[in-house]
């Protein structure tokens, strides 16, 4: 088992003929992801890597039964692409595009809710269920099948930590990069709940960072609702206030959203917080062996 993507995922790539779209479609296909269609207006009838290209998501869905979409279009057009997928009946949309205006995401949110579409991202590396399906730009070789759930706001920090987990024999059920934007789709609590309900996941690693209070909410959710152990890491302890640290959402504003507050919230909820990435597998092992409560 896993969450969100698996062998039944039938993927349509929006922006398949762009540089990134083309490159990562190849990578996903090579991993074994069932990429059934691509969308690029004006290029219907062409094929790319043997994958049929359509003018619209609706056409792609009708012809191939695609149920998941990944978006590589430029940021200015990302909201439109998300809505197109949603209106075409796609139930899970992964938006890789970086730099999407916040108001675009705010406008998209209620429509996705009405249509029952789940969104991951934007500005995210996507997700992977090792051995089954890669939907994103994550480097496949570091992941390993196993029973740890993984959620992160960051890209390369995810790779760093997942690599450490795999080297320490902690394979993963599903790893989800939720992205670095302030207004995004599925977030910590949604995914913690999915992992709690996934019979194969035995523990969860959560990578947070400065900005907002999603980690504090996650801590509260873990304390109240979760039976499975969670280990966390928070990036940005040395980040100065008022500065955006690369990610649009990684900013300490008016003194709120600091790493110290988030770490305190996790500690209070009984979630051990690693001091550095290499401590994560150590804490995870201790937690699973019942050495720490």
């Amino acid at each position: 088992m896993s969450i969100l993507v698996n062998k039944d995922t039938k993927l349509v790539v929006q922006g398949i003929t762009g540089r990134d779209g083309k490159f990562h479609t190849g990578k996903m296909k090579a991993y074994g992801t069932n990429v059934v269609a691509g969308v690029s207006p004006g290029k219907e009838g062409e094929t790319l890597d043997g994958i049929p290209v359509f003018n619209s998501v609706a056409h792609a869905v009708k012809a191939t039964g695609a149920n998941t979409s990944i978006i590589f279009v430029p940021a200015a057009f990302a909201a439109d692409a998300i809505l197109e997928a949603s209106e075409a009946g796609i139930k899970l949309v992964i938006a890789i595009s970086e730099g999407v205006p916040i108001q675009d995401m705010i406008r998209v949110t209620p429509i996705l809710k009405i249509n029952g579409t789940l969104l991951i991202g934007p500005n995210c590396p996507g997700l992977i269920t090792p051995g089954e399906s890669l939907v994103g730009i994550l480097p496949a070789m570091i992941f390993k099948e196993g029973n740890i759930g993984f959620i992160s706001r960051s890209g390369t920090l995810t790779y760093e930590v997942v690599n450490l987990l795999s080297l320490n024999d902690f394979g993963q059920t599903t790893c989800v990069g939720i992205g670095g934007d302030p207004v995004a789709g599925l977030y910590f609590i949604d995914l913690l709940e999915m992992f709690e309900n996934d019979p194969d996941t035995v523990a969860v690693v959560l990578i947070g960072e400065i900005g907002g209070d999603a980690e504090e909410q996650a801590a509260q959710f873990i304390a109240e609702k979760m039976t499975k152990p969670v280990v966390a890491f928070i990036a940005g302890q040395t980040a100065p206030p008022g500065k955006r640290m690369g990610h649009a959402g990684a900013i300490i504003s008016s003194g709120a959203g600091t790493a110290a507050e988030k770490i305190a919230a996790f500690n209070k909820a009984g979630v051990p917080v690693a001091k550095e990435p290499s401590e994560i597998p150590v804490l995870l092992r201790a937690k699973l062996n019942g050495q720490i409560q």
């Binding site: 890209g155 390369t156 920090l157 990036a235 980040a239 690369g246």
Partner: peptide, 10 residues
């Protein structure tokens, strides 16, 4: 990467 850059500073 931004997250890794922050983790490096930390």
């Amino acid at each position: 990467g931004a997250g890794l850059a922050m983790a490096t500073m930390d």
